[in-house]
């Protein structure tokens, strides 16, 4: 565990906490894409099946449980909690997210490190995570008023991806045989998707203005 990896995980954790804070405390999910949250729930459910087969550390297992639990509870909150559900921007959140799932599955069947059930699902989760933020970014662009918590949530998620890239660079130079092209390329693609958002986020921060994305 290096400092970039730890900082990345903590940023990821912070993003989930910010979102849960918004939903649980303010009872609002305005500006939050249910499509993206559903995709994340699938990502974690398919990636963390190895909880049952391999043990790395208490930290590793605990974090997996936290990400699984939080992603599913966010989806359930948004779908079934009366007050939270009422604040959902259903008309704006129209990205056809199920169309992302099948290509990712096919790609995982074609390009993977090992052809085993768990490995293909793990690879599928990497591909799907890379594009899972798209419905959220589209929704942000359509939402006139982006509140601070939603902006911070996406900012922290993007930050987590950026820190993971630093972690891979660090590991590549410090650990022999640490080469994972599939993880790196899908991680890079995912981080690049945030580039535009980061630009406008930093602009609004610099000018001390509310975050607004151009349509």
């Amino acid at each position: 565990m290096n400092i970039f990896r730890l900082a990345g995980d903590m940023t990821h954790l912070a993003s989930v906490l910010v979102l849960l804070l918004k939903i649980h405390t303010i009872k609002s999910c305005a500006g939050v894409s249910l499509k993206t949250q559903e995709l994340y729930a699938i990502v974690f459910a398919t990636r963390y099946l190895d909880i049952f087969t391999s043990f790395y550390s208490i930290y590793n297992t605990l974090m997996k449980l936290v990400f699984l639990g939080s992603s599913f509870s966010i989806v359930l909150y948004m779908k079934y909690h009366k007050t939270v559900h009422r604040s959902y921007d259903r008309e704006q959140d129209t990205f056809r997210h199920w169309f992302l799932v099948l290509p990712c599955l096919l790609l995982a069947l074609l390009i993977h490190e090992k052809f085993t059930f768990l490995e293909v699902l793990w690879t599928f989760s990497l591909y799907l995570e890379a594009v899972a933020i798209l419905p959220q970014l589209v929704l942000l662009q359509r939402t006139r008023n982006i509140d601070n918590l939603t902006g911070q949530y996406v900012f922290l998620l993007g930050g987590y991806r950026g820190l993971y890239i630093l972690n891979w660079i660090y590991r590549y130079f410090t650990e022999p045989h640490f080469v994972h092209w599939i993880t790196w390329i899908s991680g890079l693609v995912q981080t690049l998707l945030y580039a535009d958002f980061f630009f406008y986020y930093s602009q609004s921060w610099k000018n001390n203005k509310k975050l607004q994305l151009p349509a």
Binding site: R5, D9, H12, D50, S54, Y56, S57, N60, M63, K64, F67, W122, Y164, N167, E175, H177, F178, V179, H180, T183
Partner: peptide, 10 residues
């Protein structure tokens, strides 16, 4: 890498 360290990331 060996299998044990394969998926130690989240």
């Amino acid at each position: 890498g060996d299998v044990a360290s394969q998926h130690d990331e989240l």
